[in-house]
Design a protein around this nucleic acid. Structure first.
Lengths: 235, 235
DNA sequence: ACCCGCTAATGAATACAATTCATCATCTGG
DNA sequence: CCAGATGATGAATTGTATTCATTAGCGGGT
């Protein structure tokens, strides 16, 4: 007969502190092992509680994940506006958003992975706070593009949502390859390339004529006059 | 005491047939319930075998999923080349690839979902046949772009991989929104928009000057004549 | 036709992680 | 200092994937 497990010392804590401890432990374990491979027992151990206790603060494992990602994401987005406010010009502002996104992935690949793989794919994602944060976040990108259109720098007929999907789809796709170990990537260089691609497209530009329409017009008239003077109309 | 379960009739089958039956059943169940929510018992039942039997043909649940997706994907890609062969022009060929991708997602959202969510994210994805198929598949897109560059239709300085990521990232991103129920999408219209965006970019084109080479020629001749008239050759 | 071995298929046993729950420990206010 | 109230616990429960000893059917040799 195994002697009954001696009941371990019970620590009582304020709700906030407990939640914070569990979330912190969970974030670490999730980061290290991913979602499926992170047993709740590991998290409990690191948080110095017993598995069952987690259920006092979180509905279930997935809820815990959602809260963890939410918490992280929220903190991250906090100072975006501030930074963005100091940047002028459509291209620069767009580049900043992309660069910021790439940098984040570069710095926290594991958490990004969880977010893409487990949050976004869950059926309840739409009701998640992360979803709302995300919308808020990408809305800024759309705003930049709208401003660019109003300033006359961008075409007016671009499908906005598609542009957004193109930008974020591209960075994320790039990310998968990175996470999979297919060569690493440099947020700076990549951001440059993406902005360039998005703005300029693939098609070869017709060689840019230096002449402005206005100049061309004057030239046209001058030539016509010359022709009259020399009495030699073109055949 | 419960009476022992009467052993059910044993059907012996060729390996190929059994594998085919199990894969077929698995594909259905996975399509209906996803991966995590598809108990192996359901698959076994539909395949008319017992759970344990599956392990004679597949290493584990994940292996089964991989094989199922592989099988589906392979069959799908088979006639791509054939169809693509009949299409001319960079824009049209590119559009076809994108349209094909979107259509597939439109027709088999569930399986695509499994592929993106469970295959691609697994650490062993790089060693999967699906990965190889995918590379083969996207290689065609890159080829189209290369041809476009050689034909002088596209810029020479585009980062190829990034273009690929942009195209597929965009379609997939669009897909998530669709699968999540955020408005449905029309492969035809979407393909048009994506091609347009990728080729033309966002920037407003400088208003295309009514070609002036002709004007330049006339100017050249007029000046020459002036010089003759005034007897002042250029130094 | 019959036996014998070979292997496919089975049903039950095992392993393991999430979730629930009855019980106990600690705090707080009177 | 006592009595609830509530937090935390460890054990029990559940649901699946995976393993395994055992049996059923087939085919080859006599």
């Amino acid at each position: 007969m195994n002697s009954p497990t001696p009941r371990r010392q019970v620590f009582r804590l304020s709700r906030e502190q407990r939640v914070a401890e569990i979330m912190s432990a969970a974030r670490e374990v999730f980061r290290e092992k991913g979602y499926e491979d992170a047993p709740l027992s590991d998290i409990a151990e690191r948080a110095k509680v017993v598995e069952g206790s987690i259920y006092r603060y979180f509905e279930n494992k997935r809820d815990l994940l959602v809260k963890v990602i939410e918490d992280w994401y929220e903190g991250m987005l906090a100072d975006y506006d501030l930074q963005l406010a100091g940047i002028r010009g459509t291209r620069n502002r767009l580049r900043f958003m992309i660069w910021r996104h790439l940098s984040t992935i570069h710095e926290e690949p594991a958490l990004c992975n969880l977010m893409f793989q487990h949050l976004r794919t869950g059926g309840d994602y739409s009701h998640t706070a992360v979803h709302e944060l995300n919308r808020e976040y990408t809305r800024r990108t759309l705003d930049i593009i709208k401003e660019g259109i109003e300033a006359g720098e961008l075409r007016e007929d671009v499908p906005l949502r598609l542009v957004r999907d193109m930008i974020y789809g591209c960075t994320e796709h790039r990310t998968w390859a990175y996470l999979r170990g297919e060569g690493d990537f440099d947020p700076d260089a990549t951001a440059d390339m993406i902005v360039d691609l998005v703005l300029s497209g693939l098609e070869r530009r017709k060689p840019q004529q230096p002449a402005t329409p206005d100049l061309a017009e004057r030239l046209e008239r001058a030539v016509a006059r010359l022709e009259t003077m020399t009495g030699s109309a073109a055949p």
